[in-house]
């Protein structure tokens, strides 16, 4: 693998188990991931899908699953015409206890340099991770408009 294109880190006041659940349960992702739901049985080699209002927007495969420490899946965008030609990208979540906190690292790679997906994703993750932190620490997410996700399409 080439070097990762994005590495995001956030410290969350929670437990690794709760964080794992928040990453793999639609009841949680709906609240912090712009309404998106995750679908998988979370076993290596199983399919993974991201759905929005019942429609599959991205799909891929579970590459690693070691609850509650490490999760990785591939995904390819299906919904927007302009993003469909982009290659499969890979995301790796690493969960580590850090004193009374949990350190979550999100590593993302596989984009084409200058590709549109890169812009879309680089706008998405910081918002998604902020929402995830708010949800786990305060039990609620600040409403982030879905349009924030699309903001990156025109970015270089």
């Amino acid at each position: 693998m080439s070097k990762p294109q994005f590495v995001y880190v956030t410290y969350i006041e929670t437990t690794p188990e709760k964080l794992w659940e928040a990453l793999t349960s639609s009841a949680f992702t709906r609240q912090y991931w712009f309404g998106a739901e995750v679908r998988s049985d979370w076993k290596v080699g199983s399919p993974f899908a991201l759905t929005l209002d019942g429609e599959v927007t991205d799909s891929g495969e579970i590459l690693e699953a070691d609850p509650p420490r490490r999760l990785s899946y591939s995904f390819k965008h299906l919904k927007y015409e302009e993003l469909r030609g982009e290659p499969i990208s890979r995301v790796v979540f690493t969960i580590e206890p850090f004193g009374s906190l949990v350190r979550l690292t999100v590593l993302h790679d596989g984009f084409v340099e200058g590709g549109k997906y890169l812009g879309a994703v680089s706008n998405g993750w910081p918002a998604i991770l902020s929402g995830l932190k708010s949800l786990l620490e305060r039990g609620q997410v600040l409403a982030i408009p879905r349009t924030a996700l699309n903001k990156g399409f025109d970015a270089k």
Partner: peptide, 27 residues
Amino acid sequence: ANLVTTIRHRREKLHYLNPVPIHQIGE
């Protein structure tokens, strides 16, 4: 300040911009 995060990649330490804390300030 968690604005930069580092990872080891092929014996090199690489630095990444981590915008999550900036996003939290905005929020």
